[in-house]
Write a protein that binds this DNA or RNA. Structure first.
Lengths: 210, 210
DNA sequence: GTCTATAGGCGGATAGAC
DNA sequence: GTCTATCCGCCTATAGAC
């Protein structure tokens, strides 16, 4: 209910075009939400079109194929993860501090781009072949980098000497519920969630000083 | 529990038929693996038939529909989880001990029935409507029961006073990678995995005695 | 209980008018 | 750049021969 109604009076020659180059982005965002909700294989382009407000056929003026949508979403996420890893690796900090920072980035990506992260995590199997292998390789690189940090932390005596694979996957898995659960309107803020989660996880991984 | 249960000797006509009532079970097992690998929506009955060694049409002599396969898999898993919860709730033990035991059952179900657990966790969204609501309710019951144990643990001073939802979902999520990662031929046994995982998680949740 | 054949529908994607 | 119309393939499921 606009108390001071639309100031957007079309003042003649002002910018009214609203060229919406963001149509493509709208399609991608809606695709991520749809694929998350229904799964890639159970989502149809007709469904997607209905959400975007476009006929299915019309979307092909903005995108090449349904597969392309999945590719873009998955690689946008994997690129973001790898960028975060590279950033953290260059911090002049202890392994534990680096892991902490990486997990914070990790959680933050989920709260900020939840649907895309969810699709990248759960629907990547539907990628077609040249891209499927690429995606698996990217994920492997991230896992290797993360595992290296854990190994360094153990070597430095900051972390408990647990099995590195167990620690790695437990950490990565433990934060994944955020992507499914978090919504801006929750009774807990994104920052609080991040802190509580890290506290719980790292107090388990930290070696007791006793 | 009957200590002298019925021996159930087939006294009458000596059951020899061996009509392979296990054909149906074979289909269900293979369906779980297929749905896990490709997702429900991306799996076809033709694919499944090829794996089972039957024509797609022939399977309809053993099952009613593709949807039915998903239903059976999902509810077999949710029933198992709820049974484990009920069992643990009746143990004369502390909340922490109950949680530990429940998590052990949880992990064990994954290592023993991995594909079905994976499908129940990831593909349940494809259930059709009367069953979809039922499944969500079952999951909610499990979560409530689990959360109650955590609350009791906090109240008893056994657990750190973390946000209960965060603790609940972190625990449930943290063990989920097992269903995706574990294979009988790994370099770590199921028992070792279980122990390492619980050690890491519970040392994080346990209140330091300091 | 297995097959072949096929119904009937929905899928992704394209052609062409406007 | 959006629509309508449509191609054609694959989908689930059924019918009916054997």
């Amino acid at each position: 209910m606009p108390t001071k109604a639309a100031p957007t009076a079309p003042s003649a020659a002002r910018v009214v075009k609203k060229r919406r180059p963001e149509q493509r982005q709208l399609i991608l965002d809606e695709a991520a939400r749809l694929f998350k909700e229904r799964g890639f294989g159970s989502s149809s382009m007709r469904d997607l079109g209905a959400r975007v407000g476009l006929d299915a056929a019309s979307m092909y003026n903005h995108i090449r194929s349904k597969d392309e949508l999945l590719e873009i979403i998955c690689f946008r996420v994997s690129d973001a993860y790898l960028a975060q890893l590279a950033e953290v690796e260059q911090l002049p900090a202890s392994p534990l501090a680096q892991i902490t920072e990486l997990l914070r980035h990790h959680v933050r990506l989920m709260t900020q781009d939840g649907p895309a992260v969810s699709v990248a995590n759960n629907e990547w199997k539907a990628l077609t072949e040249p891209r499927l292998t690429e995606f698996k390789a990217a994920r492997k690189r991230y896992e290797k980098g993360f595992a290296a940090l854990i190994e360094q932390g153990i070597a430095a005596g900051e972390l408990q000497p647990v099995n590195v694979s167990v620690a790695l996957f437990t950490l990565l898995s433990a934060v994944r519920w955020v992507e499914l659960w978090y919504r801006p309107g929750r009774d807990i803020s994104a920052a609080e969630l991040e802190n509580d989660l890290l506290l719980m996880l790292l107090d388990g991984l930290k070696k007791p000083t006793a």
